[in-house]
Design a protein around this nucleic acid. Sequence first.
DNA 1: GTTAGCACTCGACACGTGAGAGTGCTAACT
DNA 2: AGTTAGCACTCTCACGTGTCGAGTGCTAAC
Lengths: 353, 353
Amino acid sequence: MARRVRRSNGPLDLREQAILRAVIEEYVATATPVGSVALVERYGLGVSSATVRAILAELEAAGYLDQPHTSAGRVPTDHGYRYYVSSIVDSPPLSPVEELMIRHQFGQVEAASEHWFRLAATTLAGLTHAAGLATPAKPRAARVRRVDLVAIQDRLASLILVLREGSIKQILLSLDEAADQAALSAAAERLNRLFTDQTARQIDATLVRFDPDDPANILVRKVAERIARSMREFDTALIEEFFSDGLLNVMEAPEFAQSDKLRRVFSALENRAWLGELLRGVASSGRVQVFIGGENEPPEMHDVSLVLAPYGRPGRAVGVVGVLGPTRMSYAHAIGTVRFVGGLMNELTDQLS
Amino acid sequence: MARRVRRSNGPLDLREQAILRAVIEEYVATATPVGSVALVERYGLGVSSATVRAILAELEAAGYLDQPHTSAGRVPTDHGYRYYVSSIVDSPPLSPVEELMIRHQFGQVEAASEHWFRLAATTLAGLTHAAGLATPAKPRAARVRRVDLVAIQDRLASLILVLREGSIKQILLSLDEAADQAALSAAAERLNRLFTDQTARQIDATLVRFDPDDPANILVRKVAERIARSMREFDTALIEEFFSDGLLNVMEAPEFAQSDKLRRVFSALENRAWLGELLRGVASSGRVQVFIGGENEPPEMHDVSLVLAPYGRPGRAVGVVGVLGPTRMSYAHAIGTVRFVGGLMNELTDQLS
DNA sequence: GTTAGCACTCGACACGTGAGAGTGCTAACT
DNA sequence: AGTTAGCACTCTCACGTGTCGAGTGCTAAC
């Protein structure tokens, strides 16, 4: 008699929490539905399997767990994972050893900032055994750091445009009339004097005041217009670049062993609109965020989770690093790792102005 | 009576060739072992299935075909594919429509040469429904095109090194003593005067003649050494970068549907030593090359084939583009496409000096 | 409120069977 | 001599069946 019935849908009591955690951890480790007996055996809960069964039934009724079929163990739902994740906001950080290893890897890469974000993705992939994701830090509005012009042929020049925050663009220019390296260098010098630290909008404003009849302005104007155009493109792009590594790690998870689910996930990643919106949200939130299975809008992403952290300087230049893994993922570890790598990227980008 | 027996292991006669081709084309199309009946039905060979069977048995004995089990149809061996490939050296080129599409795509990319090779990989992946591969054109010995120094903080500067053939490196420099932008610009100017078009070796030679006691030389020397070091690293790297796209296309092939073979292929691609050697060979061969299944040394690559073409200028700067697909691949189409894209990359890199 | 006991459910696995595809061989035909 | 129809044979694959075991929910006793 006296069957346990949840008195309310209020917060879970301590024992329920413990069992939910145990189910999730066991399931994350084994990838098979977990039953009441295994639970009491491996987690020393101090009660019998029958009691655990009663609680499992409650947790299922409350939507935290699910049962693939009548006589199978329980599996966490997205809702269950969400509860679990919110209970570990203050997750244990990485071990000092791991931190040192990561810092060492970044030390190797010779301060080539345009490669940092790739390295972040690779590192995250290695540490979490999931896919690592990263975008470069993208300023809200690009500013010129340095302009250079190199002669290639008579009427062909290479424009090298270095933006603040370390992005470099190389653009081929075809000129209206021949110009030697000296002329190009002079033009570049003038461009630097005029436009260093300026945004596309500011360049446009300056150009308006140019004397259209002065022949000395022709080359400079042409290049400046090209620069402004390139910067406008850069500004309007949602994500300039997007790097992922270790997608193969995810393939190893048994839930993706054979189905083509994973392939759909990969294609969905090409959907820049959704991803861009997501990343933008994370970037402006300023903290680590977790998106679990069905919480992701595209149906293809319902079987995977994302753990994302922003880095950079809010309002100036921001990027995102994170991991993508199966919903059945070690969130505590993933969150700790992503948080640390995000912090490291903060430090690194701080060095660059 | 009078069972057909191959009189010699000389070249195949016309009918045998036709049947071998038919088997391969049918198998490439259907991915299932092909039997004698299907063959006469779909390829109007003008003989009965019994005759075809006799010939199939011969081709099998000669090593061109294989039988998964007694009562299955035939499947081409690597040897069979090799024969087929060598019989289509003068493969039909792409259709004009396809060529136009490709050119159009490259037209879109705004002459940013460091992205061309990626685009080549992406294009190849799309056209062949296999994985596209590409390396950037890598000069035998890097030469300086342009050096630039940008102040970041008091003792921190960004060195921007543009190499010929379009490669750009950004390197963070920590200075021994503070230097403002003017000082850095002056140093950069001097570096450009001294070292434009020089190799790492030539820079080293020039530095030896520097007066070690002249304080004006300190900054220039430090930067020059860093430049030379970076260029030496660049020179010794087998493949600077290696880009692949569309690995997912290969996943769609039924032979890789579930097994983890493909994962091993992916890992094998990380084996830079083998791949570097292979690419180097292709680059110096000057023509499209095909590597079929077991012809690849690493055992993980025994189920895939590579079609690779070099581009660039022999002796100066060369790169490789190509595709990776299942052994059961449409070689004629792949070869035609790879050849065309390789030629296009030739045109494009020719523009840059 | 907890626990032992028990009937019940359902997937996983092994096994057996039949259909179908494709072969090699033989004997007759051109 | 080369080609073809016919046929027995082999092997895979799909399907249905039966058994096993894990895990459950329920009930009655503690």
